[in-house]
């Protein structure tokens, strides 16, 4: 019963794989929950900051802040841009990382076609691996951020580009990350974080007592706003990764189940066919003996 034994081996192997994918699905589900909580917890800060900047911002003030310097000043072509790509350290998350890389690639191409030099900064092993494979040198790379990004991580990431932007060595900074709409919708997006696009004011202007002054407050808060855009991107990407992994592992588990059904059916059929054949042989033998 050579065929039967072979089938039995395959059933065992698929069962083993299913056990792994099901476990990974459950791990991703629990990590997703925590990551999702962090996305929600980060919202009040982002809204407060955006609202205050919107309240204080006036176009007249804009010229005095280097972070608000629009690229139009240097002309549409030429210049230097930085792209910060956020990916995950681990795979087995479906097309999650390749979607992010594709988004980053098309952004880089678009910028280069417009004549800009592009520095690429990458977070996460998957993105770094891709650019190492294509042979493109990276400006910076890091893999130590992991599942729990903090505001400090974000400020480390933006510090240098912000300094270069103020010193006019950079004209624009983009972040490519996974937007966390829901656990099943995590599209890759590119967002321009520098120059800062001032948030729009909602509601009437108020006459604030300002300590010390609108200018001083803005110059303090604008860098935080940039930092926070990156922090949000980090948190959303982590949540997106877990969501994508859960979906991928759920599909894998389901597919393994389907495959097992087919294999078991084939195995049983082979087993029955063999029994039937054995009986036929015995009966045939007995008949022959009766003569």
């Amino acid at each position: 019963m050579a065929k039967g034994r072979e089938l039995k081996g395959r059933i065992k192997s698929v069962e083993g794989t299913r056990k792994i994918t099901r476990t990974m699905e459950m791990v991703a589900t629990s990590k997703l929950k925590r990551a999702q909580d962090r996305v929600v917890a980060a919202r009040p800060y982002a809204t407060s900051l955006a609202q205050v900047i919107a309240d204080l911002y006036t176009p007249e003030l804009a010229e005095r802040f280097p972070l608000l310097r629009q690229p139009a000043a240097t002309g549409p072509s030429g210049g230097r841009a930085a792209v910060l790509l956020l990916t995950s350290n681990r795979g087995l998350a479906g097309a999650f990382n390749s979607n992010l890389i594709r988004e980053a690639r098309s952004l880089i191409e678009r910028l280069e076609r417009s004549g800009a030099a592009v520095d690429v900064h990458v977070v996460g092993r998957k993105g770094i691996g891709y650019f190492r494979y294509t042979g493109r040198p990276l400006a910076t790379q890091r893999t130590d951020i992991g599942d729990r990004p903090t505001a400090e991580h974000a400020s480390e990431l933006v510090q240098d580009v912000m300094r270069d932007f103020i010193a006019r060595r950079l004209d624009a900074v983009y972040v490519v990350y996974a937007k966390f709409n829901s656990a099943i919708s995590t599209p890759p997006v590119s967002e321009m974080v520098l120059p800062v696009t001032p948030p729009e004011r909602k509601g009437p202007a108020r006459d604030y007592i300002l300590l010390p002054s609108a200018e001083a407050i803005l110059s303090e808060l604008l860098p935080l706003y940039v930092r926070n855009a990156v922090y949000r991107a980090l948190v959303e990407t982590v949540a997106g990764e877990q969501g994508a992994r859960r979906t991928a592992m759920k599909n894998a588990t389901d597919n393994a189940g389907d495959m097992l059904n087919i294999l078991r059916r084939t195995y049983n059929r082979a087993r029955q066919a063999q029994i039937t054949q054995e009986i036929a042989e015995i009966v045939g033998g007995a008949e022959a003996l009766k003569g």
Binding site: L211, P212, I217
Partner: peptide
């Protein structure tokens, strides 16, 4: 703790922003 010393806030305070 504001940037240049403590500020106290009670109800009815005028709109204010402070570093």
């Amino acid at each position: 703790p504001a940037y240049d010393g403590e500020v106290g806030i009670l109800t009815g305070h005028a709109p204010m922003m402070a570093l």
